[in-house]
Amino acid sequence: MNKIAIVTDSTSDIPKELVNRYNIRVIPLTITYKDKTYYDGVDLKIDDLLRMLDEGEELPKTSQVNPARFYEEYKRLFDEGYNKIISIHLSSNLSGTYQSAIIAKNMLETDDIYVVDSRTVSFGTGMLALKAAKMIEEGKDVEEIYNTLNILAPKSRVAYALDKLEYLKKGGRLSGTQAAIGTLLNIKPIIYITDGSHAILDKTRGMKKALSRMIKYVQDEGFDENELFAIGTVKDYENLEEFKEMVKNELGVDNYLLAEVGTVVATYSGPGVVGIWFYAK
């Protein structure tokens, strides 16, 4: 009988209790700030990161997982008695982490590692890892799980509204003038993932309109009620509470998972983010 392990990276933002329940191996990306390197979610928590963001103009820099780290983890899992590994990672358009996993697989010269490009970010990747975990519980074989994840990945939808523009300015995504004008006009950009990359879905005046626009995005796409649905935030619990009500009242969804967006995503967005993850029909 096959014993299947699940590996993902720290950008997947899976709640800790679910990581522990399903024994998911989470490999951290690294974040460098002022010549010191930290491991995402290990020795750098979200509050530490937000403090760094507020200290000055220099933004922390994120780095992909390198192949050697994946090689070590895969080898350890095989030594522990697993004979199949499913490794699920953030979009290959946004990071070299997926490619590092492929290189590590090739270094081990095995067909027993199945590497999945999630084509998305944050808990969009996490939802695929949890899908794999549930299918393992149901006794599905590795080929069926791998094929299911590759069917679901293009259906994954992620959108998040940003309350603050200063971090986009610090990261070079907005000029100082654009950020100043946008702040003055109370502009809230909504970012989404399309074709595995970030893009602007819309820009609204005020956070309430931004939340409404995300609801409309779900309605326009349609959502698969049989699959996981999630909402989350980077330290914006007031707007999250309002969004919960909108999700319940306007989408009829009251069974969803709450995700806490992690440090890698927050490096670019800062605090004041509300996001949504779902699968289109």
Results as ranks from 00 to 15, higher is better:
2 N>C: 08
6 I>W: 02
15 P>C: 10
16 K>L: 15
21 R>L: 15
21 R>G: 06
22 Y>D: 07
25 R>C: 14
32 T>E: 01
33 Y>H: 03
35 D>R: 04
50 L>D: 08
51 R>K: 15
51 R>P: 08
60 P>A: 12
60 P>T: 12
60 P>N: 11
64 Q>L: 12
66 N>W: 06
72 E>Q: 14
74 Y>G: 06
78 F>N: 05
79 D>R: 13
85 I>D: 00
93 N>Y: 06
109 E>Q: 08
112 D>Q: 05
113 I>G: 00
117 D>V: 02
117 D>Y: 01
124 G>I: 00
124 G>L: 03
129 A>Y: 01
131 K>R: 12
132 A>H: 00
135 M>Q: 08
147 N>I: 14
149 L>P: 05
150 N>S: 07
154 P>C: 02
165 L>A: 01
167 Y>N: 07
172 G>I: 09
178 Q>W: 10
180 A>W: 09
182 G>P: 09
184 L>E: 10
186 N>C: 04
190 I>R: 01
197 S>W: 11
201 L>I: 01
201 L>K: 05
203 K>I: 12
215 I>P: 00
217 Y>A: 12
223 F>W: 11
226 N>I: 06
232 G>L: 09
234 V>Q: 05
236 D>C: 06
236 D>H: 02
237 Y>Q: 09
240 L>Q: 09
242 E>L: 10
243 F>R: 05
245 E>G: 08
247 V>Q: 00
257 L>W: 10
257 L>I: 14
258 L>W: 04
261 V>D: 10
261 V>Y: 12
265 V>C: 08
271 P>H: 11
277 W>S: 04
278 F>E: 06
281 K>M: 09
